[in-house]
Nucleic acid binder design. Structure first.
Lengths: 232, 232
DNA sequence: CGTTTTCCTTGACTTAAGTCAACAAACATT
DNA sequence: AATGTTTGTTGACTTAAGTCAAGGAAAACG
């Protein structure tokens, strides 16, 4: 793996910290590797540290009694996860699984907490990460509860397009099955919504490239949470 | 209002901090009072500090384009809220409204951040609060996405019964309309589920007292997320 | 390379929960 | 106590999205 310090220095969590602090933090890390599909932790496990994705992709998810999966988050390079048990002292509230070959940097709890004690700015960074995470969950709850699937999908596509800085195409970075799980629905339903939105001239689906034909229309659906009557 | 220090000393956020730190923190607070129905802040407002409930009750919620409301949280005495903007620097992601006459203790952002800089244990407490909040949202997303309304209601009633340390009765502390909004449904649906669960002999509804007649049965529904076939 | 497995789509059908409307019950207020 | 307002309940109906089943497309694998 590349130098740990180079990877973490560019993450929101560690950005802006001075070289000395970074070195201290690096000293406590451990590298861990996972194959595709391998579990990193399971709901109920004790958490004795958190992770940052060095490379690869990790999904955090819950499973219902019937086996339906709800993805809470998909984390990529530079993103931290699994911090909740570090600060609550309680077990992991969800599962984490590598969805491709993945390398992680592990930060053991006790050593990391000591670093926080000595570095208020690290503490503030971590609070920023936790608070931003809360903000995102707020949006996810709003989407699940107040928007229909077309509204959630529209918001998701607009997000992708923004992140990828391409106003005309949203390139899907995970399988449609996993998008369904992230949006709180099932593949069949997602597939039908794609078809309907394409029929309405809003998008064109080309494999994992979604051409954004009518951005304004998609924004309206994301905003109102559903397809307007005229498009049904 | 009673001495601020007495109120906050018993909250999870400030518990265990020494007298000296508490006094410092108290010095920066401002009391604010709100009548029933009064807004404390609105989604999109800038947050220049956070609050702790001295007495009363505050709901945090989102509203859809059609006016449907999703309650994210209801906070009572001793509970902090509105911290997200303090640490993200972004506006409030939701609305806050007093649902009864309420007194709040306000902690201005800059002064509080200074306190954190000087007191690592205060920082760790705050991280604990944020992390616990994340954990709760995790459960809320699971409920919304993976459980039907009977499952959500069952989990809610069991929670109430646990908090109130009474295995036989769950006393509703907010209106059924607000419970509906908290559970991501509407009053009509909630009312019908109460009726069905009562007909199935699981509970008996006596105004705001819900008698728990079949705890095991209710636990099963909370676990499986839905009423079993035999009870339909 | 071909085979197997996973992923995606479509159709027919079912169902949980929402809408609209009417009304009853509880509560607050003069 | 009488009035109006909020809160809760019930019925008839609609609808978004889920289930089950089948088949096709794409990707992974030996």
């Amino acid at each position: 793996m590349k130098n740990v310090i180079k990877i973490i220095a560019n993450t929101p969590l560690f950005k802006g910290l001075n070289e000395h602090v970074l070195q201290e933090v690096c000293a406590i890390t451990v590298q861990k590797d996972y194959g595709k599909g391998q579990f990193i932790f399971t709901e109920g496990d004790d958490g004795n540290g958190f992770y940052i994705v060095a490379n690869g992709k990790v999904k955090i998810f819950k499973v219902s009694a019937e086996g339906k999966e709800q993805i809470l988050h998909i984390f990529g390079q530079g993103e931290p996860f699994g911090e909740v048990p570090v600060f609550t002292g309680r077990p992991f509230p969800a599962n984490a699984q590598a969805i491709v070959k993945t390398s992680l940097i592990f930060f053991p709890r006790n050593a990391f907490v000591e670093n926080i004690n000595r570095n208020p700015s690290l503490a503030l960074s971590m609070m920023g990460v936790l608070a931003m995470r809360l903000r995102e969950f707020t949006v996810q709850i709003e989407n699940l509860s107040l928007k229909e699937v077309p509204g959630r999908l529209s918001a998701y596509l607009l997000n992708l397009s923004d992140e990828q800085k391409n106003r005309d195409i949203a390139r899907l970075t995970i399988s449609k099955n996993q998008i369904a799980s992230l949006l709180g629905t099932i593949p069949e339903t997602l597939s039908r919504i794609f078809t309907r939105m394409a029929a309405a001239g809003l998008i064109k689906v080309q494999g994992s490239d979604i051409l954004i034909l009518d951005r304004k229309g998609i924004e309206d659906i994301a905003e109102n949470g559903k397809l307007p009557e005229i498009l049904k």
